[in-house]
Design a binder for these strands. Structure first.
Lengths: 200, 200
DNA sequence: CCTACCGATCGGTAGG
DNA sequence: CCTACCGATCGGTAGG
């Protein structure tokens, strides 16, 4: 059974991701749950606390999915392909919450905002590090590991804007193709990673 | 001499891109111009009209920069590289206005919103078309021209979130690297496009 | 969880 | 372009 707090966060995630945090009122959230506006405050502290909870949970989900792969075994290309799959899977498993984490975290107050900024930097760091390792080992081509990581993360995060679970492409297909596109551009040899035939 | 309307749109672009449309009040805009809130309405019709003007101008700037290249001469890879440069240049020339166009257009009312959605689809279509042409001609590899275009546009649009004109990388460097990353992944041969040595 | 309410702020207007 | 104002809505609270 979902708790009322979870229900509130689910509704808030849907509304925040659809119209944005600032354009969503507490009464909008209450209405979707057949409640009066003030009744929400029996379960939450504030609007910002709801945003913070959603953002922190999503941040942890992304980290838990990607960090072990970055620090695990395999070539840089293999790990990057698995990291891309992991990231896309988190988006696909909860598009709304992922969107709130990726695009609405800036509405947090100063302290929480800075904490999330640090978490985001650390997350980007996993990608930078694996890319840098691959370049240092001569396994990956490319001049700038930081810019390559920004390129990849931007490309993947765009997904949160348009992914639909009832769409024609599943997360595995999307992730495989994104990995082909990214690794094909970085890789020296013709067929990169561990995909189902590489970059045809 | 910039007109008052241009000044209002410049200030609004900066605030909308920084905090978002919904979180920016007309009094915020007025304060930045040393005006009273109500005085703005001597120059504008409504808050939404300001947003609409910014969005429509930026949409036209992107279209004017990219469309002629898409429909012009050259191989698909050559055109894509030039389109990437053109797109990055528009972002670099007016990051705030580009950000408002890319991320705040959803706050427009229904009619204007739909018009912008169409313009965005047409713009994405230029990239899809050139990618599809390259694939049909056997010049570019890759399975899905639509997904490849979404990948590229997402990667480029992320730029609007972090580009700074006083940063270490200029638009030409960023665009060249982005083109290397994207074309390297699509291209069959080792060295793509017309860049300064391709994907090292 | 509801009713009823608080002060603050919102986009926008009248009249000068 | 300012002063003064409008009705509506905001996040949040008191008291039950």
């Amino acid at each position: 059974m979902r708790t009322r707090r979870e229900q509130i966060e689910d509704v808030a995630s849907a509304l925040f991701s659809d119209r944005g945090y600032a354009a969503t009122s507490m009464r909008d959230i209450a209405r979707a749950l057949d409640l009066q506006g003030g009744s929400l405050y029996a379960h939450i502290l504030s609007k910002e606390a709801v945003l913070s909870s959603i953002v922190q949970q999503a941040a942890e989900r992304f980290r838990a999915a990607v960090e072990p792969i970055a620090h695990g075994p395999g070539t840089a290309a293999e790990r990057l392909r698995r990291m891309i799959h992991a990231h896309v899977d988190v988006v696909a498993a909860g598009r709304e919450r992922a969107t709130v984490f990726l695009f609405e975290w800036t509405f947090l107050g100063p302290e929480r905002r800075e904490a999330v900024a640090s978490a985001r930097d650390a997350y980007e760091g996993y990608f930078r590090q694996v890319i840098a390792e691959g370049m240092a080992a001569g396994e990956l081509a490319g001049r700038d590991h930081k810019l390559a990581a920004a390129f990849l993360l931007s490309a993947m995060n765009g997904l949160a804007h348009w992914y639909r679970s009832d769409g024609p492409l599943g997360p595995a297909e999307i992730a495989d193709y994104y990995a082909d596109l990214f690794l094909g551009g970085l890789h020296r040899e013709a067929v990169p990673g561990t995909g189902s035939g590489g970059n045809r």
